[in-house]
């Protein structure tokens, strides 16, 4: 027992000669991987339309329940969030919302510097969250994959879709 105590003291002592792992932030900035889980954004699809379809999966995946939104439907048939709110004062940057998102709309970015003096300013609305680009996924467009018809993409025009069936035709 004593040997093990002494050994652990020796091991700790040896750390005196190790390099520090600390980064001297803010003078030195650490390297953040592109998939670092920081501030959350909402991206747009390659055409510039909002990717979010208000499916609510991010909200239900969120452990501190800090995402809230309401579905609404545009005249062109797209689902869209009427409002989309993240309370960053509750967010734990776990990235489960990004995992849950079926349209790659919600993405975490390598930015964690979001201090505020007033906690109320940590509540981000859709306007604050939306960015102008597609984020990490450049080519993905949900409605191109899903079979729901929207304006400009009729039934049968999504990927891997056959022409719609005319039940009144004799050529079935």
């Amino acid at each position: 027992m004593i040997a093990s105590q002494i050994r652990s003291m020796w091991l700790v002592f040896k750390h005196l000669f190790r390099r520090n792992v600390t980064v001297q932030y803010p003078e030195e900035k650490p390297y953040l991987a592109p998939r670092y889980r920081g501030r959350i954004i909402l991206s747009r699809d390659p055409n510039g339309d909002e990717r979010c379809v208000a499916c609510n999966l991010c909200a239900v995946a969120c452990p501190p329940d800090c995402i809230s939104l309401q579905k609404t439907e545009d005249p062109d048939g797209r689902w869209r969030p009427e409002y989309f709110r993240i309370n960053f004062s509750r967010c734990i940057m776990c990235g489960l919302c990004e995992d849950a998102c079926p349209t790659y709309a919600i993405q975490l970015t390598p930015d964690f510097e979001m201090c505020e003096y007033d906690r109320q300013n940590m509540v981000y609305e859709k306007e604050d969250l939306l960015i102008d680009g597609p984020g990490k996924y450049h080519d993905y467009s949900f409605y191109q994959v899903a079979g729901k018809a929207i304006k400009g993409k009729d039934k049968g025009q999504a990927n891997n879709e056959a022409e719609p069936i005319n039940v009144k035709s004799l050529n079935l």
């Binding site: 239900v60 969120c62 809230s68 993240i86 309370n87 940590m122 609305e125």
Partner: peptide
């Protein structure tokens, strides 16, 4: 869902 966000625009 949304317990900590749904009213956050009024009161954080």
């Amino acid at each position: 869902s949304g317990r900590t966000a749904i009213h956050a625009q009024q009161h954080v």
